[in-house]
Design a protein around this nucleic acid. Sequence first.
DNA 1: CCGGATCCGGGTTGATACTG
DNA 2: CAGTATCAACCCGGATCCGG
Lengths: 209, 209
Amino acid sequence: MRSYGQYCAAARALDLIGDRWTLLIVRELLLRGPSRYTDLREGLPGIATNLLADRLRELEDLGLVAREDAPPPIAATLLRLTPRGEELRPVITALGQWGIPLMADPPRGDEFRAYWLALPVALYLSDSAPEKPPVAIEVRTGAEPVVIETADGAVRTRAGAADDPDAVLTGAPELIAAVLTGSLALKEAVAKGLKLEGDRAALRRLLPA
Amino acid sequence: MRSYGQYCAAARALDLIGDRWTLLIVRELLLRGPSRYTDLREGLPGIATNLLADRLRELEDLGLVAREDAPPPIAATLLRLTPRGEELRPVITALGQWGIPLMADPPRGDEFRAYWLALPVALYLSDSAPEKPPVAIEVRTGAEPVVIETADGAVRTRAGAADDPDAVLTGAPELIAAVLTGSLALKEAVAKGLKLEGDRAALRRLLPA
DNA sequence: CCGGATCCGGGTTGATACTG
DNA sequence: CAGTATCAACCCGGATCCGG
């Protein structure tokens, strides 16, 4: 954690969270909430385990991450963001928004985790008919499914399958991403191989205009 | 520029601009506009000249920075952000906002350039009386003065001295920063050594409530 | 003076193996 | 599960030098 030695807010921020991997660790904690060490490592493919341990210790020292013991049935310690750590959300959001155009070219062997879609979902989706009954859409594109659902006007994602989804979306990550960010029309995505089962209107209700 | 190899917008953004110094180079170009190589280096104390050259070449290859020949009288090439590069402003802004609390502790030998104040100014100052005649406030805290002035409702900064400033603010960078961000009352700052000459109301008109 | 290129020492990162 | 240990490769920072 070498300092830039500049009395500038952005430079001082980068002093703390500008190291390689640090912001991606914050992304994981923002998207997944309190996590075990091993789960973090699973969500950060490519990181060396010693680096993850180092970074977590630094983040703890800085007061951005806290360690806590999980409730009794589970024997594990959880890592969670402190309130000050949560305040990094706008940074991740700004980075993600700037990076959206980069998602147009396909993964080329990049790793992918379905819950990462929570980032574009939060940025681009909104419930255009909050007065109607809530909807749930299951997305199958990574190893594990993700559910996009509405809850009193807001749109959220969570890991896992839906009990009784209004629609199920299956296909390549770049097709899903393009549809969710509005850069590709649903019809064209289907023509390119995206599979949409169930109630198409439920999905349209959430998509950007 | 090693890739994280993750199909995630934030990770891909960091693939491009996550290297050390890269975002600070963007900060310089955002705050100063088109600049010569040597001026960039002056605004990035601590950077090794080869690193600056490397980063600029990368940014050029990525289409975030463009090189242009300065108009005839001057014999120099200028570096400027492309539109896509300008789109990084929200990233710098988010970082700067998160970093503001870190400015509370004094510089401790950190380098400082007065025009860096443009960042907090844009975030925190606004003209509460745009119908009145414009005001100009000169700030003397670094090697070179900076002017904060209003122009049709907006608050801007520019390098240099003011012809006929409504007020002049002189003092340590951390006092100036604390006042501009509203974390320290003007009266208390003056008690701590800040010097305010001229029309106090002109400054109050711009400060956060 | 401007705009770099080159070289070198040391620190950081990354891959793998290993451990309580 | 949650790391530590080790080591090679790479990147960074500082100094120096060089062509317009």
